[in-house]
Nucleic acid binder design. Structure first.
Length: 429
RNA sequence: UCCACCAUAGCUCAAUCGGUAGAGCAUCCGGCUGUUAACCGGAGGGUUGUAGGUUCGAGUCCUACUGGUGGAGCCA
């Protein structure tokens, strides 16, 4: 039996295979706190109702002993989990020789990250990782319900991307250097000409020396790309995606959100349509709120918070100046100083979770822009090719999975939103 | 790359003006038949990150280094 199904087994004699994460005692009775990977339960060992050998075994168990216990399941309000097992039998798999490093009291973040392989067993981490699983599951579901096709983009790539300084490089046989992908976008742009609407979901890598609560060097990104979508179609898809994922997490994983103390009321408001403001309006709003910012400046972390706190759901800021955005973004025909793009900012101070744009589909304009950015035209040969054979207007975006999870769980730092975080000064465990 | 802060027991932290190295938790021993980060009594546990300097005297002040944390820029 797994503990997630405990309510179906009240009154039955069952076996739990798991670990003891804490033990309390009161002389002739032991309260064993057990987990099995799917849930938690309290199990009691009464001296008067078990063999002497079983009672001695209970006494010898240390934190994180692995055990198979047998007994009767009861409902009991005195248990922290509502259910309790009366243990009849304990089979020890292993009693650790050493003290378990993670104690019931607080730890510093350095210590916890060094022991991440053990920290994962803690309750809070258990719940966060279950929410992450649900976020990814709902994301995939959403695309398949919209008839998108999954296209897995490569992780090893040649030198192509936005700028090579932010890439991790590896030696690649006789071909020199390969780079770890920081986006699959260009490949998805190729795929839409074959499949129409496509998405990916996988790891991406940035060698930026970013040290903030919103950055990892390896993070999971979902990207989508759609033929014949303009920037407006693109924004509609994004708000449908994010509201769908939040709704599904609330439906299927709210017990986990509650267990980590997340107030779910703000999440219940995440419904379409999301508010939209143009970059121009955003600058005016920020100036009114006394931010030191002028037209043409990029919108930084504090500014993002300043905008998003005006709204009760994610807000989309659209049409940024072309000078601060990537070369492949389509200029606005009504205002050539801006490009057709948008960021989605999560509420509650979580900042950017999506970066999106309509892509340039005209080959000459694309080449002009590549040159304007001082990028090597040769290495974009196949990307330019896409515009030479039946080019169409198209749009797409990238969504950071960890940022989404961090917001939904209201985490202090993105590193808890991924099982094994890769940050600038940490590559183990 | 830049700025700020931190480093004392296994863990989390104290140590007043520069003047005897301390507590809680964990561990071990003892007590308790309903504990809820259980509780109560007792015990063991220290080259104060490393190297130098100032001083009668440095955990405390100064310099460098190492490791870490938070932030900026950049981004998802």
């Amino acid at each position: 039996m797994y503990l997630e199904d405990v309510s179906d087994h009240v009154g039955e004699n069952v076996e739990i295979r798991g670990w003891m994460f804490n033990k309390r005692s009161s002389g002739k009775i032991y309260f064993l706190q057990l987990r099995d990977g799917t849930g938690f339960i309290q199990a009691i060992v009464e001296k008067s109702s078990v063999d002497e050998e079983v009672f001695k075994t209970a006494n010898s168990l240390r934190i994180e002993s692995s055990v198979v216990v047998g007994g009767m399941i009861r409902e009991d309000k005195r248990s922290p989990y509502g259910y309790e097992m009366n243990i009849k039998d304990i089979k020890v798999i292993q009693i650790p020789d050493e003290d378990y490093p993670i104690s019931k009291k607080e730890h510093g973040i350095d210590f916890l990250m060094t022991h991440r392989h053990l920290w994962l067993r803690s309750k809070r981490q258990f719940h966060v990782l279950r929410v992450r699983d649900e976020v990814i599951k709902a994301t995939r579901e959403f695309y398949h319900s919209k008839k998108f096709v999954l296209v897995d983009t490569p992780i090893l790539t040649g030198a192509i991307g936005e700028s090579a300084g932010e890439l991790f490089s590896v030696k690649y046989f006789d071909l020199g250097k390969a780079y770890l992908a920081q986006t699959g976008q260009l490949y998805l742009e190729a795929a839409i000409m074959a499949l129409g609407k496509v998405f990916n979901l996988g790891p991406t890598f940035r060698a930026e020396k970013s040290k903030t609560r919103r950055h990892l060097t390896e993070f999971w990104m979902n990207e989508a790309e759609m033929a014949y979508y303009n920037s407006n179609d693109n924004m509609i898809l994004q708000e449908e995606l994010v509201s769908y994922v939040v709704k599904k997490v609330l439906e299927r994983a709210s017990e986990h959100l509650m267990a980590i103390g997340r107030d779910i009321k703000p999440l219940e408001k995440v419904q379409t349509p999301f508010p939209r403001i143009s970059y121009d309006e955003a600058i005016k709003l920020l100036q009114k709120k006394d931010f030191d910012i002028k037209w043409g400046d990029d919108i930084g972390g504090d500014e993002e918070t300043g905008i998003s706190e005006e709204f009760d759901r994610p807000v989309m800021v659209y049409n940024y100046p072309r000078s601060i955005k990537a070369f492949y973004m389509q200029p606005d025909p009504d205002n050539p100083k801006v490009v057709l793009c948008n960021d989605m900012l999560a509420p509650e101070g979580y900042g950017e979770i999506i970066g999106a744009s309509q892509r340039i589909h005209d080959p000459d304009l694309l080449i002009e822009r590549i040159k304007e950015f001082n990028l090597p035209v040769e290495s974009y040969d196949w990307y330019i090719d896409l515009r030479k054979y039946g080019t169409v207007p198209h749009s797409g975006f990238g969504m950071g999975i960890e940022r989404l999870v961090a917001w939904i769980c209201k985490l202090d730092h993105i590193r808890e939103a991924i099982p094994f975080a890769r940050t600038i000064y940490r590559i183990r465990p």
